[in-house]
């Protein structure tokens, strides 16, 4: 009987550090075109984030803090550099910097395309057949005309759909990451005005679960969202719309939404920037509590030094690079 060799009981320090690293960004470059001038915002920023760490990124307005956060959170592409989440590369280069890749379609996609083609062709032929006077109903002529028309319609549709489909394939891995591993809290809350507080909170889980999965788990997810909101002191606001809430309440709803899918990393972009001091304090307390009690990994961008000092580690974005704060 031969077994695989047992793993060593102790992991070497270096690899333990690697195991603890949840997110690693290396040499991140990002430039924006503003008319004719090119503004380079990030010039090789590096960041290593350990699990359970609370990192604050500080910097002047326009220094690229938000851009860095968006790139880390896979909301935005980068020009060059590498991003790794739990050791897996997820950097999505901007379209003009990207090598053209190939991808194989799954049978479902082929089936979808075939159905669309069949639908268009059959529809065109039926339409032609019924709209042609009896006397002129020559099957051969209708077939030729129908096929020609179908081809035109199909090519037109394909050109349009292809744009979405290719885009979809490119971004598919990063959207998954955004949905299940990352949570975002924005300065301006960004809640959907048509949805209630509870629905806004459940949005990520609705996206995560398909139709049947969601219906199956609906009650559980509802309870989870309600618990989250209750823990943030919003139990009396479940059915209200965002427009009926105060700024602090909206930001807490945004936090609840970000936490709904139990993300590994929570990104907060100036979470208190739009709030008064006391309310801002409350939001900070929520984040600190999350960090201390649940060990939530948090990356927070702020220009407020006082807030930044509450983090485990404070970095400053200066000249397009991250530096340790003095």
């Amino acid at each position: 009987m031969s077994h695989p060799a047992p793993q060593p009981a102790t992991i070497p320090t270096a690899s333990r550090a690697a195991a603890d690293t949840i997110l690693r960004a290396t040499h991140v470059h990002r430039a924006f075109k503003m008319g004719d001038t090119v503004v380079t915002v990030l010039k090789g920023a590096d960041l290593t984030l350990r699990r359970g760490e609370f990192v604050a990124i500080e910097g002047r307005s326009g220094s690229g803090k938000s851009t860095l956060l968006h790139i880390l959170g896979a909301l935005e592409g980068l020009d060059s550099g590498s991003l790794q989440f739990e050791g897996v590369e997820y950097a999505r280069l901007n379209a003009d910097k990207r090598p053209r890749g190939t991808r194989h379609w799954s049978w479902r996609e082929w089936l979808g395309v075939a159905l669309v083609l069949a639908f268009v062709a059959v529809g065109t032929l039926m339409g032609l057949w019924f709209s042609t006077p009896l006397a002129l109903r020559d099957p051969a002529r209708i077939l030729i005309l129908g096929v020609a028309l179908s081809v035109v319609v199909i090519v037109g549709l394909a050109l349009l759909v292809a744009r979405v489909v290719t885009f979809h394939f490119d971004e598919a891995p990063t959207t998954r990451l955004r949905n299940t591993q990352f949570g975002f809290v924005f300065q301006f809350y960004h809640l959907l005005p048509e949805l209630s507080v509870l629905e806004n909170t459940m949005l990520a889980s609705m996206i995560d679960n398909g139709w049947f999965a969601f219906v199956g788990k609906r009650a559980a997810l509802r309870t989870k969202a309600t618990d989250l909101l209750t823990s943030l002191g919003l139990s009396h606001r479940l059915t209200h719309r965002p427009s009926q809430l105060s700024g602090g309440e909206r930001q807490r709803v945004a936090i609840a939404r970000a936490l709904m899918n139990d993300p590994q990393v929570l990104f907060a972009d100036e979470p208190t920037g739009n709030l008064d001091y006391d309310t801002g304090r409350q939001i900070m307390n929520v984040l600190e509590k999350l960090h201390k009690e649940k060990g939530q990994t948090i990356v927070m961008v702020t220009h407020d030094r006082a807030l930044a000092r509450e983090a485990d580690r404070v970095l400053v974005l200066k000249g397009g690079k991250l530096e340790k704060a003095e």
Binding site: G73, L75, V164, V165, F167, H168, E171, A172, T175, R176, L177, R178, N179, T180, F184, F186, H190, L191, L192, P193, L203, A204, I207, D208, R257, N261
Partner: peptide
């Protein structure tokens, strides 16, 4: 537009938005 951004930021795909 902004709502679309929000939906995408919480993980909706482009084809989902379409």
């Amino acid at each position: 537009t902004r709502d679309i951004g929000i939906i995408k930021s919480v993980g909706a795909t482009s084809s989902g938005v379409a």
